[in-house]
Simulated assay, not measured.
Amino acid sequence: MRFTKMHGLGNDFILVYKNRKPNAEEMSELAVSLCNRHTGVGADGLVVIYPTDRADIAMRIFNADGTMAEQCGNAVRCVAKYYYERLSAQKEQITIETKIGVQTVWLQAEDGRVHQVRVDMGEPVLKPSAIPVCVGSDRAVNERIEVKGKSFVFTGVSMGNPHAVIEVEDAANFPVERWGPFLETHPVFPQKANIEFITIHSPDEVTMRVWERGVGQTFACGSGACATVVAGVLTNKLNRRAVVHLKGGDLHIEWNQDDNHVYMTGPAAFVFEGEWRR
């Protein structure tokens, strides 16, 4: 089986092209084997690309633990670059079918190479029952949560997948791997959650570290960066356009006031190609 290794700001994926929609159970098992960094290729997730009548291309994302992810902004950017450069489909605007629906993507390319990808990540979901998060208020803004004797304040946002955004004093050096697992699986998140630890530097700039559901700490999370800006706007601390500094680099996020959609702009890169023999 041929595969391509790619990453979006260090959030790395194994991309596999199939001629038809993949079998979810089979791909789930394959993801666990392929993503293992000691006995496999090594990645945060497996992305399966296949033809569809609903969009230019379709994709499904399987986390390193085999669970299927609803959304992944970094993976969408990787698929867009792959589609443009590897499938000889050099269109500057394409549509990609994901588990949560069809997303529009714009590609900034020069000499046949994609340098930046802008993704319409859709409207943020703020209703607690739809995120889902178990709170008694109309919106999960500045909600208190306790784990292992420590108290945190989070804002809940779904970008097609659940996020809990937590402001801390120094996100860059925060012990993500200590607190991430406890927060991800807290009963207040019935489908678990991606946990973002953030430090706001100005209304236009924020640093974020992430513990991804089903993966662990990663270098970047596109949907998490979107959720971070939405949460910052809801708490009156960020503007609707902001730069999110991630461990792997920067993403530019805009929560557009006119259409209520969140737009993410950032790079994607090829790492290598290979063949997996089972």
Results as ranks from 00 to 15, higher is better:
residue 15 L to P: 04
residue 15 L to T: 06
residue 16 V to Q: 01
residue 18 K to Y: 09
residue 19 N to Q: 06
residue 20 R to K: 06
residue 21 K to P: 04
residue 23 N to E: 12
residue 24 A to T: 00
residue 25 E to D: 12
residue 27 M to F: 10
residue 31 A to T: 03
residue 34 L to F: 10
residue 35 C to V: 06
residue 41 V to H: 01
residue 45 G to E: 08
residue 57 I to S: 08
residue 57 I to H: 07
residue 66 G to S: 05
residue 73 G to E: 04
residue 74 N to L: 12
residue 76 V to N: 14
residue 77 R to K: 15
residue 78 C to M: 07
residue 78 C to Y: 08
residue 79 V to H: 03
residue 81 K to Q: 07
residue 83 Y to N: 05
residue 87 L to R: 13
residue 90 Q to T: 01
residue 92 E to D: 12
residue 95 T to P: 08
residue 104 T to W: 00
residue 110 E to N: 14
residue 113 R to P: 02
residue 115 H to D: 04
residue 118 R to C: 13
residue 121 M to W: 11
residue 123 E to N: 13
residue 129 S to W: 09
residue 130 A to C: 03
residue 132 P to W: 00
residue 138 D to T: 11
residue 141 V to G: 03
residue 142 N to G: 11
residue 145 I to C: 09
residue 146 E to W: 04
residue 155 T to E: 13
residue 155 T to M: 05
residue 156 G to A: 02
residue 160 G to D: 07
residue 160 G to R: 11
residue 164 A to Q: 07
residue 164 A to H: 04
residue 167 E to K: 02
residue 169 E to L: 08
residue 173 N to C: 07
residue 173 N to S: 10
residue 184 E to A: 08
residue 184 E to P: 01
residue 187 P to L: 01
residue 188 V to S: 14
residue 195 I to F: 10
residue 198 I to G: 06
residue 203 P to L: 05
residue 214 G to Q: 02
residue 214 G to A: 13
residue 231 A to K: 08
residue 234 L to V: 10
residue 237 K to N: 02
residue 240 R to F: 01
residue 243 V to G: 10
residue 245 H to L: 12
residue 247 K to H: 04
residue 255 W to G: 07
residue 261 H to W: 05
residue 262 V to N: 10
residue 263 Y to R: 02
residue 263 Y to E: 02
residue 264 M to P: 09
residue 264 M to W: 06
